[in-house]
């Protein structure tokens, strides 16, 4: 059976959501293809005039566009950005970022839940980026979110699963897809998130700051697929003390 997952009514097979920030437009196609990604994030900014390249021309057809509300400091600003993003005409997906802390870029869960409620009612597929707090995650669910996107570590740090224990709680308790977003710096960390039972992983900086962008996108693809396969297989138990031989304890040559 095909291993799929859903956001709203949209079904996906790839569990790698790719960011498009901080690397050349010329590398986007290769990165998407090597990542096997079906979803790519974008930001909305004041448009440039004149004959400048537009990112939409570089994204392969059929890839779902996921605009974010970066730059929003509260729910009101996030809602404004989301409505504008939808008006560009590339679908109903929106990743909510409400950030008023400019040093650590930590999301404001309260404002994020407020924006989630407004936008879900307007028919958006709402994907809230959040600090992994169980109560707040429940608020997102009640507000109509399509998933929750807890951070592994602050945005752009490549520090990995610093919030691991709390993401595990969300995976246990929240019935929507849990997508680990932000902080994932290496394929091994993406793999671990998937082994824990995350529905998907989102990464941008890890790819953008790699020596070879398309090659790192491919490395993440394999790691995410491996982690997912391990989760489905069920990881083996851990012995707290002692050891357990893997080879038979009979028939030794000295007997």
């Amino acid at each position: 059976m095909k291993d799929t997952w859903k956001l709203g009514n949209h079904e996906f097979t790839s569990r790698f959501i790719l960011g498009s920030g901080k690397y050349s437009l010329d590398l986007i196609k290769a990165a998407v293809e090597n990542a096997g990604a079906q979803i790519i994030t974008l930001a909305l900014r004041r448009a440039a005039t004149g004959n400048v390249a537009n990112i939409l021309d570089y994204i392969p057809k059929g890839v779902t566009l996921l605009p974010n509300t970066s730059g929003a400091r509260n729910a009101e600003e996030a809602v404004r950005i989301a409505r504008l993003a939808r008006e560009v005409g590339c679908g109903d997906f929106i990743k909510i970022e409400c950030i008023r802390d400019s040093k650590y870029l930590l999301p404001d869960n309260y404002e994020t839940a407020k924006a989630t409620e407004i936008l879900a009612k307007e028919g958006f597929v709402v994907m809230p980026y959040m600090y992994p707090d169980l109560n707040a995650a429940r608020d997102m669910v009640n507000a109509g979110a399509a998933c929750v996107m807890p951070l592994g570590a602050p945005i752009g740090t490549n520090k990995g699963l610093a919030t691991k224990e709390f993401i595990k709680i969300l995976i246990e308790e929240i019935d929507l897809p849990v997508i680990v977003d932000a902080g994932i710096g290496k394929p091994s960390q993406a793999c671990e998130a998937m082994e824990m039972g995350a529905a998907a992983v989102m990464a941008n900086t890890a790819i953008a700051t790699a020596g070879d962008v398309p090659a790192m996108a491919e490395a993440f693809r394999y790691a995410i697929a491996a982690g997912r396969a391990a989760y489905l297989a069920g990881t083996g138990r851990v012995l707290e003390t002692g050891a357990a031989a893997s080879s038979p304890l009979t028939g030794f040559l000295a007997d």
Binding site: G19, L25, A47, A48, I55, N68, V88
Partner: peptide, 10 residues
């Protein structure tokens, strides 16, 4: 007027 478009972002 505000005129916006998509750019690369996470």
């Amino acid at each position: 007027l505000e005129v916006v478009s998509f750019v690369g972002g996470g």
